[in-house]
C-alpha cells in the first residue's frame, strides 16, 4: 500500500472484516476476504490490482450498490451494510456520485438534462434543478456544451458531463470505476486534473478504481488488491 496521507484526518469510510462471496455453479467464490480499510474525508485514493482482484466489487460495496457477505461498512458515520435496497438507493442518491468508465450518459438527454437527472429524485423545483445542473457543468468546464447530446461530445467531454452529474447532488463521496479507461492520454489527464480539483478545492472524497499507474499516481494514496486481499 502506497502511503501519503494525513493519519489524523477524519475517517469517512471505515471498513472492517468485509468479506464478499459469490455462488457460481454450486461453488462459493470468495471475492473479498476480511478486508479492513479507512479512507479519510477529502482524500483522493486509488484502488489498483489485476483483473479479478476484487477492486470493482469493493468499490460497489463502498458505494452501496452491493452488500457484503460479512463485515461492516460505515460511511460518514452510517452503517450501510445493514441497509435494505430502498434505504441504500436513497442513501446513494444523497451521498454518492458515480463516475463510470463508459460515462453511462442517457443518449436521449442533453448534457444539462443528464446532469439534472439525479435531482429528479429530490424535491427541488425544476428551475432550481436546471440552475444547479448548469453550475455543475460550469465547474467541469462545459458551459458551452449544455444543449449538446452525448453523441455530439468527445469522450473527454462526456466524462466531464458524467462528473458534473456525479457532483450535482453535492455528495460526500465520489466513486470512479476506471474513469480514464476509455480516454486518450490528454483527455484522461484533463479528467484526472478535474478530479484532483474537486478533491482539493471542493473537499470531495474520491475513491477510484484504475488499471492505469499514471492515473493512480494522481491519487494521494493507492491501495493494491490481489485475490481479494490488500497487498502490503
Amino acid at each position: 500500500m502506497t502511503t501519503n496521507v494525513d493519519r489524523t484526518a477524519e475517517v469517512l469510510i471505515r471498513i472492517r472484516g468485509v468479506t464478499k462471496d459469490y455462488a457460481r455453479g454450486g461453488e462459493v467464490v470468495k471475492v473479498l476476504e476480511a478486508l479492513d480499510l479507512d479512507v479519510n474525508r477529502g482524500s483522493f485514493e486509488a484502488l489498483m490490482g489485476p483483473s479479478g482482484s476484487g477492486k470493482t466489487t469493493l468499490l460497489n460495496l463502498i458505494a452501496g450498490l452491493d452488500s457484503p457477505t460479512s463485515g461492516t461498512i460505515e460511511i460518514d458515520g452510517q452503517r450501510i451494510d445493514r441497509m435494505g435496497e430502498g434505504a441504500l438507493a436513497k442513501w446513494r442518491s444523497n451521498h454518492v456520485g458515480f463516475i463510470f468508465q463508459s460515462y453511462n450518459l442517457m443518449p436521449v438527454l442533453t448534457a444539462v438534462e443528464n446532469v439534472e437527472l439525479p435531482l429528479l429524485l429530490t424535491p427541488v423545483r425544476a428551475s432550481e434543478r436546471r440552475k444547479r445542473a448548469e453550475t455543475a457543468l460550469r465547474v467541469v468546464g462545459l458551459a458551452d456544451r449544455m444543449s449538446h447530446y452525448p453523441r455530439q461530445l468527445s469522450g473527454g467531454q462526456e466524462q466531464r458531463v458524467a462528473i458534473a452529474r456525479a457532483i450535482v447532488i453535492d455528495p460526500v463521496l465520489l466513486v470512479a470505476d476506471e474513469p480514464t479507461g476509455d480516454l486518450d492520454r490528454q483527455s484522461a489527464d484533463d479528467v484526472l486534473t478535474l478530479l484532483d480539483r474537486l478533491c482539493k478545492e471542493m473537499g470531495k472524497t474520491i475513491l477510484m478504481v484504475t488499471h492505469d499507474p499514471a492515473a493512480a499516481d494522481r491519487a494521494s494514496l493507492t491501495h493494491h488488491l490481489d485475490k481479494g486481499r490488500f497487498r502490503a
Partner: peptide, 8 residues
C-alpha cells in the same frame, strides 16, 4: 446507471 444514482 439510473439505479446506481438512486432511482428505485
Amino acid at each position: 446507471t439510473m439505479r446506481a444514482i438512486g432511482f428505485l
